[in-house]
């Protein structure tokens, strides 16, 4: 566990960089982490996913990818285009949630 300063706010993260307290998350933090993850700008599509994850986070953990596609109506292709190279972890990081639990 360590403390990290993002967008002027200090947040608690675990060894893998996942936020430990979803309450510390702000939209500015999301935009900042997205840049670190190689997403220069968060579009409406990104926010649809992030908002869904924030609303459906069980115990502070991000939902699984299939839960996200089923819940947002986005296709697998769209999800992988919005968050290329590892959407499971990227979405969780940006949404300020823990690593998703569950295999699908």
């Amino acid at each position: 566990m360590s403390t990290k300063v993002i967008a002027g706010k200090s947040i608690q993260v675990n060894d893998e960089g996942f936020m430990l307290n979803p309450g510390e998350w702000t939209k500015e933090i999301a935009a900042e982490i997205a840049k670190e993850e190689g997403i220069p700008e968060l579009t409406a599509g990104h926010w649809k996913v992030i908002d869904f994850c924030r609303q459906n986070a069980g115990d502070g953990k991000s939902p699984t990818l299939r839960t996200i596609t089923n819940g947002t109506g986005l296709s697998t292709k769209e999800l992988f285009t919005l968050f290329p190279k590892g959407p499971a972890k990227k979405v969780a990081h940006i949404a300020g949630l823990g690593k998703p639990e569950g295999c699908v």
Binding site: L65, K85, G86, A88, K89, C103
Partner: peptide, 12 residues
């Protein structure tokens, strides 16, 4: 299928 999906989700 399960492992492949997990790998893709993790950027592999």
């Amino acid at each position: 299928l399960v492992m492949g999906w997990a790998a893709l989700g993790n950027g592999i």
